[in-house]
């Protein structure tokens, strides 16, 4: 039986953490199935994919070409299906990021394989593959058996822990051919904010605010807290987004992003079912709300009842002290 093929994701030539998470998921399956893990990375000429070895790849196929500095679907689909033809892979595993959510379905349709998107668990029993994926925006979990010989599986960010391994892997550089007719779709630019911003869907800590913040300027309180925590992103409820206080990219919930951070703060957020849908898989939830009956306290691990304008600055202060001491 064939091994697994992991699609690695890069930004500016460096592999993203989600790539190592996808490798971790693939490695856990491969070890059960006693097969190998190959990885493929497309990126600019300065692409450095060597760390894929450290995180579990046996062979890494590297395509470093400035034509794929940005995500170009036609090159990706072409190169990955080409690679899939060289070996009889059991599954292609990729991160369920904006890129992976666009690419996964295209690969599945092109190859005629089933697609299990955005999974949070994978397992192998005998030679069979099983996955679990949240449905109804996380209100239920669907466990699936892969009934086909092959499948495309995308894994939700923050669901698998990258494992460093003492593995030596071979790196194989390949090239893209000449481009035929101009493709009908092309990514022309990536507009990143001047100050690199951690995305709520990827951040290990998320500090979210809602209508209780009262006005947009008050989100500074949450940004200060996020900075004190380090590695934290600021999220928002839909009420805050619809009011125009925060960009839609920061919205957490059923019609926003689904997040699974280690630590989630819901500040001035009531805890509507659509908001809970987006954050209930966080490892630890903290709620700060002046209404002791707010539904958010039903899912929170720890709560403080009171005025966020008094509590949050104090929290930022204490965390800063703690970080300085550590």
């Amino acid at each position: 039986m064939g091994g697994l093929l992991v699609v690695l994701e890069q930004r500016d030539g460096g592999l993203k953490k989600v790539s190592f998470e996808a490798l971790a998921a693939a490695r856990s399956l491969a070890d059960r199935l006693a097969v190998g893990v190959d990885a493929i990375a497309l990126g600019p000429t300065n692409l450095d994919a060597t760390r894929a070895a450290q995180f579990g790849a046996d062979e890494v196929v590297i395509i470093a070409d400035d034509r794929v500095r940005l995500y170009q679907p036609h090159w990706y689909v072409g190169a990955i299906t080409e690679q899939a033809k060289t070996k009889d892979y059991r599954a292609i595993v990729l991160p369920a990021t904006a890129l992976g959510k666009d690419l996964g379905p295209r690969l599945a349709a092109r190859l005629g394989w089933p697609l299990a998107p955005d999974v949070t668990e994978v397992s192998a029993e005998g030679s069979e593959l099983f996955v679990t994926r949240p449905v109804y925006a996380g209100k239920a979990l669907l466990r699936l058996r892969v009934a086909a010989p092959r499948a495309v599986v995308s894994v939700r960010p923050n669901s698998f822990t990258p494992v460093e391994q003492g593995r030596t892997s071979s790196l194989r550089h390949t090239v893209l051919g000449p481009e035929g007719a101009a493709p009908a779709v092309r990514t022309v630019a990536l507009e990143a904010p001047a100050e690199a911003k951690l995305d709520v869907a990827e951040a290990p800590i998320v500090v979210s605010g809602g209508r209780g913040l009262k006005e947009p300027a008050n989100f500074k309180l949450l940004e200060d807290l996020a900075r004190a925590l380090g590695g934290a992103a600021v999220g928002a409820s839909r009420a805050a987004v619809d009011a125009g206080w925060r960009p839609h990219a920061d919205q957490v919930g059923q019609t926003g992003k689904t997040v699974s951070p280690t630590l989630y703060f819901a500040i001035g957020i009531s805890g509507a079912i659509q908001h809970l849908a987006g954050m209930r898989t966080a490892k630890v939830i903290v709620a700060i709300n002046k209404d002791k009956d707010a539904p958010i306290f039903k899912v929170a691990d720890y709560g403080i009842v009171g005025d966020l304008f008094e509590i949050v600055p104090r929290l930022t202060e204490e965390i800063t002290k703690l970080r300085a001491g550590a």
Binding site: G138, K139, L142, R143, A147, K292, D301, I304, G306
Partner: peptide, 26 residues
């Protein structure tokens, strides 16, 4: 190519605690 084995509710979050009121609870 996928067969449904089970649809289940996610594990209940274990009940949390209110640690107190106001900044004194920080």
């Amino acid at each position: 190519g996928l067969e449904i084995v089970q649809l289940a509710l996610p594990p209940e979050r274990k009940p949390g605690r209110i640690l107190g009121e106001g900044p004194e609870a920080v």
